[in-house]
């Protein structure tokens, strides 16, 4: 079941609830983690863009990982990072052209979006449906 997050900047009000939801959903030992989603300025007043991993077809993060810690999850279709395998060389953080592999300095971990194993917290908490989780066919159709 391949689903994707559909990001609609026009609906985003910049409340950053998705960042909070992400931090708590990926908390380490009860401490909030670095958010995998980052709400950025869209280049115009009151325009916000939640930037989140695109789970590319030909991902630079997985290609740059020399220990194969980033692999595609066959169930969700997302590119998942295996924390136990990661050697923290920062190759993926530098190689991702969208900056969606991040370093969590508080927990000393490299982190990236894993679509919450098929149940993304950001989409559940988005009050305006700027982030929705839909099957990939629906996602492609809405993109035109």
């Amino acid at each position: 079941m391949n689903h994707r997050l559909i990001v609609s900047p026009l609906l985003c009000i910049g409340c950053r609830t998705c960042e909070l939801a992400c931090s708590f959903a990926h908390a380490v030992n009860g401490k909030p983690a670095r958010s995998r989603i980052d709400v950025k300025d869209g280049g115009k007043k009151d325009l916000y863009v939640p930037v989140v991993c695109l789970h590319c077809e030909d991902p630079a993060c997985a290609k740059s990982c020399l220990v194969n810690a980033i692999t595609r999850n066959p169930e969700t279709g997302s590119m998942d990072l295996d924390q136990d395998k990661c050697v923290k060389c920062m190759a993926c953080v530098s190689a991702c052209p969208f900056g969606c592999s991040l370093f969590d300095s508080q927990h000393d971990l490299v982190v990236k979006c894993d679509l919450c194993q098929g149940d993304p917290a950001c989409a559940k908490f988005c009050p305006t449906k700027a982030l929705v989780y839909r099957p990939i066919q629906v996602a492609l159709r809405s993109a035109g």
């Binding site: 869209g42 280049g43 863009v49 930037v51 969208f98």
Partner: peptide, 10 residues
């Protein structure tokens, strides 16, 4: 990179 992506998507 994230800023660039946000600007493009915006």
């Amino acid at each position: 990179h994230r800023k660039e992506l946000a600007a493009t998507m915006g």
